[in-house]
């Protein structure tokens, strides 16, 4: 029971990350690999604030969002000049650099030792009660985040995103500042990614750099692409698939020594199969952008 609640919470954390990444990468197809960096910033802010000054998650949330936004703004001054594969590489290096910082800044992050004894969301003792409250808090967070992303995407701001990579010259010729748009959407996406980070810290109770590697960012990007770029609902479903599948494979009866590898192989094959048969994303006819619509 407690295990299922835990998995459900993790699914929602990934769904939140996918929604944030979708904002930046979905419509624009400006693929970012820095999700885990800002997720990590959120987690570390919560870990430090709660263990050192006893801050509750409600205080950590705005603190984490602000820290993440400030750092995103700083690196964004470089990032906003890049598009296409340069943007991908640029965001990847941000993730790599911040990971090194988390690993080496002993006095603040405790490096590879990580920060432990992070309190739960509320002061409870019953394990199931703790899991249920985690699930509820994260669930509320997910709903709010989805609403924020939906609102942003359905606005005139969201409309501009379609042209950011496809038709930047058209946008500029119509008086729209593409650089500023790229910076805004990057910072917004990064700032919101800190929210699941805060939840992660309080849910797991322990943070260390291994949770925020570039591979985490790749996983988030995989979720967004599987769900269909720009498709928020698709991202939700893909998050379920990507998190639950490897967990479900744990229950396969396999010889101990090879179990882990076989699981990885099945997981990899499943992802490849999705890309082959549903390149437009797991759900929805128009999931991959909207051009998937037959002419």
């Amino acid at each position: 029971m407690s295990y299922i609640l835990h998995i459900a919470t993790i699914v929602m954390l990934y769904a939140m990350l996918a929604a944030c990444l979708n904002l930046c990468s979905g419509r624009t197809r400006l693929l970012a690999l820095s999700t885990a960096a800002f997720y990590g910033i959120g987690a570390y802010v919560a870990a430090i604030a709660s263990t050192r000054i006893g801050a509750s998650f409600l205080i950590s949330l705005p603190l984490a969002v602000a820290t993440s936004a400030a750092i995103a703004l700083l690196v964004g001054l470089v990032v906003m000049r890049c598009s296409g594969e340069f943007f991908l590489l640029c965001t990847l290096s941000i993730n790599a650099v911040l990971w090194v910082v988390a690993n080496s800044w002993m006095s603040v992050t405790r490096g590879a030792l990580g920060i432990s004894k992070i309190p739960g969301f509320f002061d409870l003792s019953n394990v199931v009660a703790i899991r249920v409250t985690s699930l509820i808090v994260v669930g509320v967070g997910l709903i709010v985040l989805q609403l924020v992303c939906t609102r942003a995407l359905s606005s005139p701001f969201g409309r501009l995103l379609w042209g950011l990579e496809d038709a930047p010259i058209f946008l500029a010729a119509m008086g729209k500042d593409a650089k500023r748009l790229r910076l805004t959407v990057f910072v917004l996406s990064a700032a919101l990614s800190a929210i699941p980070g805060v939840f992660f810290a309080h849910h797991i109770g322990f943070v260390d750099p291994s949770s925020f590697t570039v591979m985490e960012s790749v996983l988030c990007l995989a979720i967004v692409i599987l769900g269909g770029l720009g498709n928020l609902r698709g991202g939700l479903i893909a998050a379920v698939a990507v998190v639950v599948l490897p967990e479900a494979l744990r229950f396969l009866v396999l010889p101990d020594a090879s179990a882990a590898q076989v699981r990885q192989i099945i997981y990899g094959l499943a992802l490849v199969a999705c890309m082959l048969w549903r390149p437009q994303g797991l759900i929805g006819e128009y999931a991959f952008g909207r051009e998937a619509k037959p002419k």
């Binding site: 606005s155 005139p156 701001f157 501009l160 729209k176």
Partner: peptide
Amino acid sequence: LLCFKNQPGENLLNVF
């Protein structure tokens, strides 16, 4: 629609 100038909704503060 995208081509109209000075749209308040292009600013996220206004959107929210």
